[in-house]
């Protein structure tokens, strides 16, 4: 039981940075760039999506850098 709990915890932690990426991709699909004219709410939705995608990508990169540093590669 202890093992299952910690396995789930580890998987959730590893998945955490991908959550904002997924949310960002969904937002960007919901507010595509091709709409004309672009309403303000639409612009804001798309901007939030972009921020989430890049924030998530930065998080994944951060985790990789930390892991590499931990292993002594960086």
């Amino acid at each position: 039981m202890t093992d299952i709990y910690y396995l789930l915890e580890m998987l959730l932690i590893l998945a955490a940075p991908f959550v904002p990426i997924a949310a960002g991709v969904l937002l960007r699909r919901k507010f595509p760039a091709s709409v004309e004219p672009v309403p303000t709410a639409h612009k804001l939705g798309r901007l939030a999506g972009t921020l989430l995608v890049w924030g998530g990508a930065a998080s994944v990169l951060f985790m990789i850098i930390v892991a590499l540093n931990f292993k002594g590669i960086l």
Binding site: Y6, E9, M10, I13, L14, A16, P17, S59, F62, M63, V66, A67, F70
Partner: peptide
């Protein structure tokens, strides 16, 4: 900070 905590938990516990 949350990301740092997650990384710390992974590296020093998991």
């Amino acid at each position: 900070t949350g990301l740092s905590i997650a990384a710390r938990r992974l590296l020093y516990f998991s």
